[in-house]
């Protein structure tokens, strides 16, 4: 199958070819990059939504429930669910489908499980590319669900237009959220499992915290939800639509678009440079050699990096 045929398949909504295309893109192959080149001009229509929050906060369940609501509103949905790769074996168990089983029969929902992998390109870059594929395939809303609340997630969240941060009562999530600097990137805050004790305290706490932030522009809503019973999901879908309208009418969409373009371009340059300098097998040994020299303090990392890049220019 040629890359052109694959791209055509994605654009006309062939699910099998869409799945294949995502594999190529995820594996960072030259064919995957070629494919992105063809698809990128067709992307940019979808509203991209990041759902993040600590493990066990109910992100998958909430994403599933939100997707049901979006479907009731006639929107087609693409989902990218990220789970961690084991740093020891490079394997991963991707279990997000368990919470979204009933979406499987709906052909206007396409869900893909993605492992973080240890790729040189970085997770956020791979996810941004996968979102582009689902966007080009015509999905109205593309949701990316990340695990945890660390720097990686902040990066991933940054690739989405709207970031939903999911917190739960009684887990110290309010403090975690402040520590990780993740409050700043949240566009919508959801207190999930709101039937648990401490929900009102957390809601009050979050509202108080938000009063200190962002004086003008988008007002971050703080919502309650019980995702397992699909409670609060209508309100969440409303907030996402309001956010989209706000982005469109305030001009923020354009600013954010340029900001994301800059971010993605710099990330792509970084990986292209790394690929050229140390990508192929001979490059790997060059890298290992440099690692040894840096580790033994023979040379500092900056000079070693300059040397590796210089070799690219010479070739």
């Amino acid at each position: 199958m040629t890359v052109d045929e694959l791209a055509e398949g994605v654009l006309r909504g062939d699910r099998r070819l869409l799945a294949r295309a995502m594999t190529l893109v995820e594996n960072r192959t030259p064919r995957g990059r070629h494919l992105l080149r063809l698809l990128y001009p067709h992307s940019g229509r979808a509203h991209t939504v990041g759902v993040t929050g600590s493990a066990g906060s109910g992100k998958s369940t909430l994403t599933g429930a939100l997707t049901h609501e979006l479907r009731r509103r006639g929107k087609t949905v693409g989902i990218i669910a990220v789970d961690p790769t084991s740093p020891f074996t490079s394997g991963a168990i991707l279990g997000d489908r368990i919470r979204m089983q009933d979406l499987t029969g709906d052909h206007d929902v396409f869900m893909r499980s993605v492992a973080t992998r240890g790729s040189l390109g970085g997770l956020s870059e791979a996810v941004a590319d996968l979102m582009c594929v689902l966007d080009a395939a015509g999905k109205d809303v593309v949701i990316v669900e990340t695990v945890g609340a660390g720097q990686d997630e902040v990066e991933v969240a940054r690739t989405a237009q709207t970031t939903v941060l999911v917190l739960t009562p009684g887990t110290g999530d309010d403090i975690q959220a402040m520590k990780a600097g993740i409050m700043e990137i949240a566009d919508i805050l959801v207190v999930n499992k709101a039937d648990l004790p401490g929900a009102d305290t957390l809601l009050g706490h979050l509202r108080a915290l938000l009063m200190l932030n962002r004086a003008e522009g988008w007002q971050v809503p703080v919502q309650r939800a019980i995702a397992s019973r699909e409670e609060g999901v209508v309100e969440l879908a409303d907030a996402i639509e309001q956010r989209r309208r706000f982005l469109e009418t305030s001009g923020a969409l354009e600013t954010a678009r340029r900001e994301r373009a800059r971010h993605q371009l710099l990330a792509a340059m970084r990986s292209a440079l790394i690929r050229r300098a140390v990508g192929e097998s001979e490059g790997v040994s060059r890298l290992e050699e440099a690692v040894e020299r840096v580790a033994s303090r023979e040379i500092d990392p900056h000079t070693a990096a300059e040397e590796l890049i210089e070799q690219v220019r010479e070739r």
């Binding site: 294949r20 394997g91 168990i93 991707l94 029969g105």
Partner: peptide, 30 residues
């Protein structure tokens, strides 16, 4: 778990799957 420990990515879909759900998951996850 054993497949994961040998370096593979394992999509686990849980219990009580219909044949259609399994096939659709296999398709989407490639």
């Amino acid at each position: 778990r054993a497949l994961r420990d040998s370096g593979m990515e394992v999509i686990y879909t849980g219990i009580r799957q219909t044949p259609e759900m399994i096939a659709e998951a296999a398709l989407q996850e490639d």
